[in-house]
Amino acid sequence: MRYRKIVDAAFDCLAVGEFDRIKIDDVARAAGLAKATLYRYFPSKDSLYAVVLREWVDANHLRASTAVGPERARIRAHAMITAFAESPQFFRLAVTLFSSSDPVVKSELLDVGARTHRYFHDDFIDSTRVAPRDAAVIMQAIVHAAVMASVYHGAAFADAHHLVDQMIRLSVGDPISPVTGDHKVNSDAGAPVAAELPTFKQRRRRRIVECAREALRENSYEQIHVTNIARDADISLGTLYRYFPSKEAVYAEVIRDWFTHSGVIANRDDLRPEARVSARVRAALDAFEADPEFFRVNVLLYSIGDERVQAVLGEVIATARETLLRDLSAVRVPSAGDAATMLWALIGSLTTGVISYGGNFPEVRRVMEVFIALLVASADGRAGDERGFSP
């Protein structure tokens, strides 16, 4: 069957190369078919690889286990992480396709997400700590963000496995383990340091970032050209490239600037510790809801292999995590570093779903409050039903 030959050939091509370097001609050649024949089955490279991703997920996300309940969820999550560790190109494929506007691709990825959610939902069905649908959403988000940190920022995959175990402890009412690693991301891979520039160059660099930021408020990222940014900043294109080697590098700095001024890391020491955590999360979600194109670009930049871009994004993550770490430490949450990592993972993953796939922010806020309640309960040892988040 030609359909099967094409999909198998696409798998073979991805086994030896990255998605962004694979051409449709390569797949057609591997399948022994004309390119025109391939296009009769798949209208685009993205639509073909969306099918590849769905089949790979079905084969690797462990549907069956002799374990039951949250333990089965733990085994499933560990299997997912191991699969991505062994074949990280499939995770990079997922991140790239997630930014696609093709309705066929979106439909395939929605199906992948729904299937994974259903597996976890069934795993958590007997949990009395939190509603199964919420536990499934939280686990998916933590796995995704933890693998993201490993694939793009150099965190150990062991950290991802560790966070899964912490989530399972929360789901069954156990305090999360105080024994933990640092879970740091690699944020020093050639990141530009503006403070090292002379004052007049700092001002020029700042003007480039401001013009790029304003362009993003008026246009989609794909419509913006570096030549227009240079024109608005009243400099030559060559001068701009002396400060930023690419459009992606410019917008990584725009994202850092936007995040810094979004209110997410504002001082909230006037609030009680528990209220501080909730206020911090609300501020992040408010910022993302107000500027969805900025958040979308943040996600899009993850598919860029440039180390400078990844370094800047890594710094944003590290800053967010350290801010949440201080808040959670004030609440005396055990292993506050892990809790901060999981909390930021949940914010990012759920927001991505809303902006890219039409969810809603009120539901995200509700799930975030459920998770915050779990963390606070782990700090003071109170039972889940006393905190008001029983299923």
Score class of each variant (00 low, 15 high):
A191C: 03
A340I: 07
A10T: 07
R365S: 11
F84T: 06
D26E: 10
T341D: 07
P391Y: 03
G384L: 06
A36L: 02
V112K: 02
Y221I: 03
Y49V: 05
D188Y: 11
D174F: 05
I168E: 01
S278E: 13
P132H: 11
P391W: 05
G263W: 10
I6Q: 03
H225F: 07
A194F: 08
D182P: 02
G384V: 03
R169Y: 00
F90W: 13
I176Q: 12
R21K: 14
D12P: 00
V52T: 06
A340D: 08
P192D: 05
V193Y: 00
A15N: 12
V179D: 11
F259Q: 09
D102S: 14
P175Q: 08
S100G: 04
V27R: 04
R63T: 02
V185T: 13
G314T: 09
R40H: 13
Y221N: 02
R207L: 10
R256Y: 14
V333M: 05
V367G: 03
G314R: 04
F294D: 04
G358H: 11
A114M: 08
T82A: 15
Y152P: 02
T66N: 06
E214K: 12
A114K: 09
I235E: 04
D26H: 14
R280N: 07
L240A: 07
R40D: 08
A67P: 00
L343H: 04
T239Y: 01
E307T: 11
F90E: 02
S87N: 15
S335I: 02
T319L: 11
G181M: 02
A320Y: 03
A379R: 05
R296N: 09
T239K: 09
T199W: 11
E315W: 02
E274A: 12
V226M: 12
V376D: 10
A149S: 14
S349F: 15
V51Y: 00
R296E: 12
S107W: 01
Y119V: 00
S100P: 09
H261V: 08
R256F: 12
L216R: 01
R387N: 01
A233D: 03
P273S: 05
A30N: 02
L38G: 06
D174N: 07
A36E: 12
A194T: 13
R40N: 13
E307R: 13
Y221V: 06
Y39K: 07
R129T: 15
G384D: 09
F84K: 01
I304G: 00
D291K: 11
W344P: 00
I355W: 01
A194V: 10
I372A: 14
T96H: 12
N60E: 10
F200H: 14
V367P: 01
P334Q: 09
F91K: 06
S349H: 13
M148P: 00
L48A: 07
R40C: 04
G353I: 02
S246C: 05
F157D: 08
I235T: 07
H162G: 08
D26Q: 11
G384T: 12
M1S: 15
K247E: 02
E108A: 15
V52H: 05
R133K: 11
S177Y: 04
T96K: 13
G190Q: 07
R308I: 11
V27L: 05
P245F: 01
L343M: 13
